[in-house]
């Protein structure tokens, strides 16, 4: 399979348009390869839920899903606020603890929420694993763990919607080039629908 992904490419968790680049379908998901990792896209209706597998350190790999930059302004405020059970994933991100995200007929996936930083200005849900990016064990684990991180990233968007109240009236670019946009409010409504479809309220906190 040729490498079609950019090395720095971290897709937004919800894909609203088909990715025309070459992919291989494995176990119900689309895989696209890059030089240093690969992406995993799960179909849900006419949408896609997207994660990225990558090396994050020596002997350490991760599968991550991005909730985008919309939470960036909030993290310093969240750090100064008490933990709030109505926003379990954001609270976990502040406390730097993992959240167990359950999957149907599978063990729960331990997911870390990584706040946006100057180095990487997006909030991501991440599951790490010691090993190599192309190890059999990693490939098998990340196939399912990708579902956990995309579920967590989508739920982060739902928690953001609750946090912000009335969403700002801004548009979000879709696909490459940013020529097609969708209102942020619609993105958040879609996230809520996806979360409802994927068994809402199932994330439980662990230390």
């Amino acid at each position: 399979m040729p490498a079609v992904l950019d090395d720095e490419e971290i897709p937004f968790v919800i894909g609203f348009v088909d990715d025309p680049r070459r992919a291989v379908e494995v176990g119900g998901a689309q895989y696209r390869r890059g030089q240093t990792g690969y992406s995993i896209s799960w179909p849900i209706g006419e949408l896609w839920l997207r994660a990225r597998a990558m090396t994050v350190g020596p002997g350490q790999v991760a599968v991550i899903a991005s909730a985008g930059p919309i939470l960036n302004d909030w993290w310093s405020l969240l750090r100064s606020a008490p933990q709030d059970p109505t926003r379990p994933l954001l609270s976990a991100g502040v406390a730097r603890r993992s959240v167990d995200v359950p999957l149907p007929s599978m063990p729960a996936v331990p997911v870390m929420v990584v706040p946006a930083s100057d180095d990487f200005p997006q909030t991501v849900a991440m599951c790490t694993h010691p090993g190599g990016i192309a190890d059999d064990e990693t490939l098998t684990l990340f196939h399912w763990a990708s579902l956990g991180v995309v579920k967590a990233a989508v739920r982060l968007l739902v928690e953001y919607r609750e946090l912000v109240g009335e969403p700002p009236e801004v548009d979000v670019g879709l696909g490459e080039g940013g020529t097609v946009t969708i209102p942020l409010a619609d993105v958040l409504a879609t996230a809520a629908e996806i979360t409802a479809a994927l068994d809402p309220g199932s994330a439980s906190s662990s230390t």
Partner: peptide, 20 residues
């Protein structure tokens, strides 16, 4: 330039707190 929601008009008959 900020992702800030518009301001709510002075008096609100249905109000739900948001933010922190």
């Amino acid at each position: 330039a900020l992702p800030a929601p518009p301001l709510k008009v002075l008096l609100q008959q249905t109000y739900r707190p948001a933010g922190i």
